[in-house]
């Protein structure tokens, strides 16, 4: 059988599914759902489900367009070479059309069924990830992760606005929290994972500015995150459950960043502080948003002020 005959086979549906990056989508669904549940007011469960579905579809569409654009880069990196397009299992044009269809459907359904402001923010988030981040800034600046963090920061804001129909300080704060959380989360990973980004010309921070500078910036963002995470409580938008959880979780985040910030790793280092920080950063986001929802539920039931 020749290679040409292989590519003529219809693409397996699982490859379309894989294009949407289902694992990244789980965090997007979780934070979007938390924004929706923590927002003041109520939304019919069917419309709430539709809003979360649209956030997930939009994230899937943006991830698909990202892989369509980066197919040549992906082919050059071990971690991504087996993705559906560089793996030769899917025609790039089909992937592009699939990504556009998912993105357009998510925005239209969100607008018609739930709320047009939420739909507009969803459209902005898809364009931000697929165009501003993927096409424009990722290959050009070592600040790419800082900028890319914006894409991941939209879901709780969209969930919140789907309920309230307006942008207030709280959804902006939720955006700012994930935005500030992303660089220490990703750079901790970048410090201990041998990546091929340098080989394909993507200017990641540890490669461009060196490990020492990256380590200091991890600490800087973690310190910035502490007041930002506590801000919803300080301005009186949440109760003590969230406030105490935010302060404790963020203080531990800073504490775990300290050993990472002030050490140098020799060849063959096991990178335990970096691995611990990365693992904790994932837990941090889940726990912080879970506390936000728990706080809202407790206040709605009159359990706390």
């Amino acid at each position: 059988m020749t290679a040409t005959a292989t590519t003529q086979l219809p693409t397996d549906w699982r490859d379309f599914y894989a294009l949407t990056k289902p694992r990244v989508m789980s965090l997007v669904i979780f934070t979007g759902l938390c924004g929706l549940l923590a927002a003041p007011g109520s939304i019919h469960p069917v419309l709430g489900f539709t809003a979360i579905l649209c956030i997930a579809l939009g994230a899937g569409g943006a991830a698909t367009l990202n892989q369509w654009w980066e197919r040549d880069l992906d082919a050059g990196m071990k971690r991504t070479a087996a993705r559906p397009i560089p793996g030769g299992r899917m025609d790039p044009t089909n992937a592009r059309d699939f990504g556009i269809a998912l993105s357009a459907a998510s925005v239209l359904i969100m607008g018609v069924a739930v709320d047009w402001l939420a739909a507009i923010i969803l459209a902005v988030s898809i364009l931000y990830y697929a165009v501003v981040y993927t096409i424009w800034l990722k290959p050009r600046t070592p600040q790419n992760i800082v900028i890319g963090g914006g894409a991941g920061a939209f879901p709780p804001m969209i969930g919140w606005v789907a309920v309230t129909g307006e942008i207030t300080l709280m959804p902006v704060l939720l955006f700012a929290i994930i935005f500030t959380w992303t660089p220490p989360h990703f750079w901790a990973l970048a410090l201990f994972v041998q990546s091929d980004y340098a080989k394909v010309g993507i200017p990641m921070m540890p490669v461009v500015k060196g490990a020492a500078s990256t380590r200091r910036q991890i600490l800087l963002y973690a310190v910035l995150l502490l007041p930002l995470a506590a801000a919803p409580w300080l301005i009186g938008e949440t109760g003590a459950i969230y406030g105490v959880a935010a302060l404790a979780l963020s203080a531990l985040f800073v504490a775990l960043c300290l050993p990472v910030a002030f050490r140098t790793a020799a060849e063959g280092d096991r990178m335990l502080p970096e691995k611990r920080l990365f693992g904790y950063s994932v837990f941090y986001l889940f726990a912080l948003f879970a506390a936000l929802v728990a706080d809202a539920v407790a206040r709605n039931h009159g359990w706390i002020a």
């Binding site: 059988m1 005959a5 086979l9 219809p10 693409t11 397996d12 549906w13």
Partner: peptide
């Protein structure tokens, strides 16, 4: 197309149709 290829072609087509 060999019979094996055709069988694989039909199988993928069918599973895609069901998912759609």
């Amino acid at each position: 197309m060999t019979p094996e290829e055709e069988a694989e072609f039909r199988r993928r087509q069918k599973s895609r149709n069901w998912v759609l």
